[in-house]
Design a protein around this nucleic acid. Sequence first.
DNA 1: GAGCCGTTATACTCGGCAGGCATGAGCGCA
DNA 2: TGCGCTCATGCCTGCCGAGTATAACGGCTC
Lengths: 286, 286
Amino acid sequence: MELRHLRYFVAVADAGSVSRAAAQLRVTQPALSRQIRDLESELGLPLFDRVGRRLQLTAAGDNLLARTRDILRAADGLREQAGALAGGASGTLRLGATAQTLESLISAFLVGFRRQWPGIDVRLVEDGGMRLKTRVQRGELHLALGAVPAGDDLRARPLFPVWVLAVMPSRTALARRRTLDVSELDHEAVLLLRRDFASRLRFDAACETARIRPRVLIEAGDPHSLVSLARGGHGIAIVPSTTLFSRAGLHVAPLTRNGRAIGGSTAAVWDARRHLPVYAQAFVDA
Amino acid sequence: MELRHLRYFVAVADAGSVSRAAAQLRVTQPALSRQIRDLESELGLPLFDRVGRRLQLTAAGDNLLARTRDILRAADGLREQAGALAGGASGTLRLGATAQTLESLISAFLVGFRRQWPGIDVRLVEDGGMRLKTRVQRGELHLALGAVPAGDDLRARPLFPVWVLAVMPSRTALARRRTLDVSELDHEAVLLLRRDFASRLRFDAACETARIRPRVLIEAGDPHSLVSLARGGHGIAIVPSTTLFSRAGLHVAPLTRNGRAIGGSTAAVWDARRHLPVYAQAFVDA
DNA sequence: GAGCCGTTATACTCGGCAGGCATGAGCGCA
DNA sequence: TGCGCTCATGCCTGCCGAGTATAACGGCTC
């Protein structure tokens, strides 16, 4: 039994005659006649009574007609939904982001995106950059946003640059500097993020090349706590520029190494091997 | 889009691999692969991500999978219902009967039939014998029960004989007779049914051949009223033997003509050109 | 990293079936 | 009785689904 049989059945029942239905279906009457007989033989019962030159639904046929219409409606619904999904009118966008990206970028941007793609159900996942990467590769996420390393089969689109900032109280000696070289932090007390933050990794790499070992007072999972410690004069907080905080009483200087600012780029990363829904592509473009 | 595509889609999604699904479906892997691609191209979106040697549902595919299962379930339901209808487990039996047959036969018989065919919805229609005939021919009824004339494309199965009875008070002169010839009714006052009753037509025909003209006191549509008039001594009621009434104070004699009882047969009549559901056939047999 | 296994995609061929054409058969109507 | 309308049947063709063979590719192991 195929949908064709059901379409034909309904058409004949509606038209009240094989020839008329055949004309509407753009097939010939014998072809249609055959399909109806095939369906009847498969179902094991006659759908129509052949009385004289006219077809008339049997009681059983009338009974099955309603169900058949339901099936065809459902099939149409499937097509329609597929069209909507293909056109991006509906669907699910599984989005991963680092906490900082979430705070600084997503929450603001998502408002506009939700307005533009009202049918899209956006699911947000917060995780560290490295773990986001594996989740994209596993297919759990469509997109990862943040300072996520690309590579392998992942494709990335840089969104905007992220600098590594040094945050200190305004009255510190170093607070007069517009920028701060990593080497100047030697033996300074610094407040760092954990090693699953991209900015921390960049800072470490810069210290490595500069052969300095700052005193690490704390390794935190939240840049805000570092800023608040810095405000209290406990050291220099090293945070990414995506961190949002009030700068009152604080001095903020981008970290440099050999005159070049340390930093990278927040990127949208996805799996090149997988198909990206149009709305996900639109998200990246936006 | 055909049901085959949907069956294949679900199979692949369930098996998690084209090859395994192909084995289960008893088709080869390339055939299945092609059908999936065809479905994807028709729907306009990829259902699976080809990541390495593994297929994985896309978000859209997962979305459509639920709907697809619904459709397949509905199609199975259709088959099942067709099987039930073919096997007679469910359906509608449209039954027509004359008032007398209804009273004498159907009401008692239907109890057993309903027990034997619990899924069958029996619709009863009461009408005159001639009109039942046309309604069977029009396909409104599966079966007509009663003294219905056969002929044309109607097939009949005699159920039991019906005699034409003369009903009179016990104290009448004629009340000693075991049977009564029509000729003996000449100039007697008779109480008759209307001309749409088969027994009336038979009585008229007998009078015609006997060349008698009884006095017709009344033409009624209900044999019971005739019986009650006869009990009151107003004449001889001519009713079919299917009439149920108390015989207290009454004498009942079958009418004869040339020594042979006048009567016919209650029959089940159906349209030979149409398909008769098994339960309708069972009704006739029972 | 070379080789093997498992999986999917591609190329080609074959066969069955849907559909078209021609025609027969049945019914209703003038 | 002939005509028109409708459905059924027989035959043919072309397409498409399925099979076979094989390539491409990823992952695993040694």
